[in-house]
């Protein structure tokens, strides 16, 4: 769990940006919580406050979370470019104004299609902004590039390379 204004420089620190992304992921959020990258597990949900991912357009900020096994990011609001980048990379990003009720370690089930987050630990649930179907299908395809590959392949099959 993180507070407001988690920026892209703490998600993907500049000094490791020219190296491999897997290495960069080890330093994700290190400036605000050195225990985050070593301690995070597959399927974890990152919870943020307002304006999560503000700053740079570097999509490694979203990519490192995916590499660390993060299933979804839920925040009160997002930096615009980070939000687009996350979805384009197949990382679920959900806007949820009520998310501040969550406590660290709570078990969350995120249903982006329905716009609902279930908190199994507190036996509660929160409304969130549902993602439109075209974005859900892009995320399910694994992101924009696999989505585009499928589209191009389909166009080729129909004899329309444009």
């Amino acid at each position: 769990m993180f507070g407001d204004d988690i920026d892209t420089d703490v998600l993907a620190p500049g000094q490791y940006m020219k190296g491999p992304v897997a290495e960069l992921a080890k330093h994700c959020l290190e400036a605000v919580d050195p225990a985050f990258a070593p301690g995070v597990a597959d399927g974890d949900v990152v919870v943020g406050g307002r304006n999560f991912g503000l700053g740079s357009s570097r999509e490694q900020a979203a990519q490192v979370l995916k590499i660390l096994g993060i299933e979804a990011v839920v925040a009160r609001s997002f930096g615009g470019i980070f939000y687009r980048n996350a979805l384009n990379l197949g990382l679920v990003a959900v806007v949820c104004p009520a998310i501040c009720a969550v406590k660290p370690g709570d078990i969350l089930i995120v249903d982006a299609r329905a716009g609902r987050i279930e908190n199994r630990t507190q036996n509660d649930s929160y409304e969130c902004e549902p993602l439109p179907e075209h974005l859900i299908s892009m995320i399910e395809a694994g992101g924009l590039i696999p989505h585009l590959e499928r589209k191009l392949a389909a166009e080729l099959k129909n004899g329309d390379p444009t």
Partner: peptide
């Protein structure tokens, strides 16, 4: 406006 690298790929392709 600014976009990420993945979105830029889609722009360059299409």
């Amino acid at each position: 406006f600014g976009i990420g690298a993945t979105e830029m790929v889609a722009v360059l392709a299409t």
